[in-house]
Amino acid sequence: MTTAALSFDARAAARAWRPPPLIESVWLRYTVYLGALLYLVVGLGSVEVNWVRAAEGLERGARFLAAFFPPDFVTHWFDIQEGILESLTMTVVSTVFGVILSVPFALGAARNIAPLPIYLFCRSVIAISRTFQEVIIAILFVAMFGFGPLAGMITLAFATIGFLGKLLAEDIEDIDPSQAEAVRATGASWFQLLAWGIQPQVLPRFIGLTAYRFDINFRESAVLGLVGAGGIGDTLNSSLDRYEFGTSAAILLIIIAIVLACEYASGWIRRAVQ
């Protein structure tokens, strides 16, 4: 023991030791650092701020903040009510349709139960739905179906297909194959396999995701009005345009309250089913 201790030179080892760097390779490390720095300079440089305009705006911002104390629910109550109702109905119908439609797409997009051509088709629909922001899709649907909540509803249903379809398909791909095998071994048909081998395994998460998507759909429904697809967003936009910040504040508060309620409810549902 003592001879070993003597032969080990702790001093030299300590001198040679360096704190471990975040990135192993020296060359890569400095490239990343330099790149990040360069990007920050260029990126921040590309932001043009009109400070004179901003200074003017700050006064407006202060007025906007002041409008929250107290918010004005009364003046445009009818418009607000109409907008909120539209948003809520869009949310309900789009979630229902979206969920119903997402099931076949999810089944088609799960590699372990769908044949390749169907798989590719379903995956590409899901990919398109996920790539574009809801608002862009709403623009296209408004052009097709005309202004109003129907376009918004279809938009949200389409987005729901992408969201639920992808997550559900991944769930189906991750199921315990032995359970499905056991059902198949009883001589069950393909639909019986779905009902007994797969559905029980993915149902709790499916319900949880549905509740979560309901939540998202309401939030999104609040902006679709900006492109004419119905909902509270339109009311909010026009109140902001007319500088009626009291009404805007009231709308924002209502949105936040409903989102909170939805979130609370969806959290409760998710806990209940799991």
Binding site: A5, F8, W17, P20
Partner: peptide, 27 residues
């Protein structure tokens, strides 16, 4: 934060790690 510990500390660390047979695994 910068891992700039006194050299004596690092030395002691090496000595103890050697003592318990782990001086080849420091990093």
């Amino acid at each position: 934060w910068f891992r700039r510990f006194p050299l004596a500390d690092i030395e002691e660390a090496f000595r103890l790690l050697h003592r318990v047979g782990l001086d080849h695994m420091v990093d």
